[in-house]
Amino acid sequence: MIWQFDILLLTLVVVCGFVSLWIKDLMGAVIVFGAYSFLMCLVWTGMGAVDVAFTEAAVGAGVSTIFFIATVFHTSRTIRYNKWDLSTKFFSSIICILMGFFLMVAIGDFPAWGDALSPVNNNVAKYYLENSMEETKVPNVVTSVLADYRAFDTMFETGVVFVASLVIFTLLLQSDGRKKLMKSAFQKVSFLNVSESLIIRKACGLMVPFMQLFALYVVVHGHYSPGGGFQGGVILGASLILLSMAYDIKKVFARFHMKFMIKSLAVGVLIFAGIGLICLILGGNFLDYSALSKLFPSMGSIKSRYNAMLWVEVGVALTVMSGMFAIYTSLSSNGKFEEGL
């Protein structure tokens, strides 16, 4: 942690956030917000949180900007001004200043920034750092805590992604859209409505296989380097999003049916919860992977924890990939699934 660098970046972050709220054009506000996310990613790299920075670069700056742009594209871009509404502004300013004042007063009681001896860094976090290598043989402590020690937490958060993408898919689908969806998405299409530039199509065709290969590397290599199921899944989803932006949504649907997407959305959560259930059947606790060594006696309890983590990451990656793609297709086609951005 270099405090000079971090202070500079944090000041830029506040400026970027302020500009993105202040700017009048909604598309400009969204783009500035993407820059805000990239700055946040730098801040987190500076504080030693490389996994979080990776996730933020893929999710915050990449995918959520696309979601915002899709929404602005399908609603209106300009802000309509109404008569100067003083009471709401005055009231909200008072609330915010009060909240800020009380929080500022409380700042003095927090441990200093970068204090290695504060209570946050010393109880259970210290245990993870000192024992993770012996107990699981995974050098990246973030992965071992994510997929093993706190797997219960991660399982339900994967479940939230599953439920959120199902909610978006079902609520945005129109009643007449369902018939069209049966025609367009669930069956193979013979014609493609391609109108984009040839350069973009060829370049995307060149990039997408390498992106998917890199995403698989990120998923599998998460034990030794920053990365894991969430990051790899988002990059896989982003490669499909890129393909559907360069060509057409139908082109991607011809390869991956929407039916297949929803199935893999469910299968990811099923793999995660299923491994937990197998552990329960074999006599351990829920998601206690060392019980798996009874099923595979050649692996010791450490080796089985190591391998089960990989499968859990694969499940997370499946869910996140199809979740991101389902959210993108729903938002960008406004529930019609005919053409995207």
């Binding site: 996994d51 979080v52 933020e56 995918v63 259970v124 937490d153 992604v161």
Partner: peptide, 16 residues
Amino acid sequence: PLTQILMLTAIVVGVA
């Protein structure tokens, strides 16, 4: 690592 994994999942859930 503990605060990092809590926030890593929070970002993905946040985008959903």
